[in-house]
Design a protein around this nucleic acid. Structure first.
Lengths: 229, 229
DNA sequence: TCAAAAGTGTTCTTGATACACCCATGC
DNA sequence: GCATGGGTGTATCAAGAACACTTTTGA
């Protein structure tokens, strides 16, 4: 079927804010632009939406093509439609945010492209287009959502310690948390299953490993349970 | 500048879920479609985004054109991009939701178009396209947001009674609330200013009128205050 | 034996919930 | 005077916040 011409149409893109946790620090994946406009500047991974793919599909495709990421948590964030966001022509961008387990994906693959790099969210360079605004929106969403939905686990490996979990929350929320109260509350949900293994990470007492029981969470959720940290 | 042809492009539309409160019942504004596809079916107000207007502008324009509504609360909801949502061709729709003060706008103007009608959200007819899904998403957003942001006031006239406010929350949340606890909490914020007027609505004690102090709320918000019912 | 992170309970304070009667008005 | 919604306070309970020491390991 040929393109049905009616009126000039905006171009449609997706842009992805990819968060990862590295060394208890929240990082975001950026791509160095190879072409104008903004050649040489850092930008969010993203690209045009094809006419025969859904928005989600486009976001997943771009993540794989530009960052080598597959099977990651992905959620639509907001759609940005200001007139001059792209200097070339009218471009409307559907923004997504993604959470990846940095330890799990070998970081090499993710940063294989010489033009991709992880930046601490507190130290991102100037970004192309309106990507700074998109990043801000993603951070705000993450901060808000992490408190009442167990999406934080998407940033951790399948087996993790309570300290890792706490540091994750501290990094995302930008606050310090009381260790005892944190553990009391998070264990109180009954959604963390203690594994038989421990993890050694230095010259100190080894830490108990846990995994998140996603099935149990789904069942509880249906009964009106509310994960709220 | 001519339309830069590259690849076939999706068409871009906006659709608006307009909520109003009538008789302590939550209603939604629907339009009866005059043209195919779905001719004669009820649908959300909306239409194509022009290449020279922002998404917000398009939503506001459609609200005015199709429903005679101006200066209403409007917020982007989600962008729907499934492949076959429109049987004609690929259409991506940015959905908005809007809250209107039904008493304030003369209802006549809003329903002036013979093809527009307010439906209780519990009794909406079958909708065109994927509009049922959009409506569900808007309801979920409203339910979620009303609890931690003072957007409920957008559904009430500038002067309202505490009972009206309570009924609003009950209608949106679908629960019953304790009158004394509700009043204690909502007055505790210090954001409702008691007016000198009262309102008579029957053969019983007249009710104290209040107004919402939006300025004070904005100031408190900047200092980290959290409206949470 | 020292450094460094893991692990563990109790008290206090605060906010949430539950609950029943009098008030002002129109008919 | 009665029906109708408006308006008010207290006691109980649950959850959140504050807080310090012991344990295990590697060096």
């Amino acid at each position: 079927m040929p393109h049905t011409y009616q009126y000039p149409r905006a171009a449609l893109t997706v842009d992805c804010v990819v968060f990862g946790l590295d060394d208890s620090e929240l990082k975001v994946l950026l791509i160095e632009r190879a072409l104008d406009p903004f050649k040489g500047k850092w930008a969010l991974p993203g690209g045009f939406v094809r006419v025969d793919e859904t928005l989600d599909d486009a976001a997943r495709r771009e993540l794989e093509e530009e960052a080598g990421l597959k099977n990651v948590f992905l959620e639509q964030l907001y759609t940005f439609g200001e007139l001059k966001r792209d200097p070339r022509e009218r471009v409307v961008s559907v923004a997504y945010y993604s959470l990846v387990k940095l330890a799990a994906h070998d970081t090499k693959a993710a940063t294989d492209a010489a033009d991709a790099r992880w930046f601490p969210v507190s130290k991102v360079p100037k970004l192309a287009f309106d990507h700074a605004e998109i990043l801000d929106a993603a951070l705000a969403r993450l901060k808000g959502k992490v408190r009442y939905q167990p999406i934080g686990f998407e940033l951790l490996p399948p087996k993790f310690t309570l300290s890792q979990l706490q540091h994750l929350y501290e990094a995302v929320l930008g606050t310090e948390l009381d260790k005892r109260n944190f553990r009391k509350k998070v264990l109180g949900f009954g959604l963390l299953v203690p594994l038989k293994e421990t993890q050694m990470t230095g010259r100190h007492r080894p830490a108990q490993l846990f995994s998140f029981d996603a099935d149990k969470y789904e069942k509880l959720k249906k009964r009106g349970f509310n994960f709220e940290l």
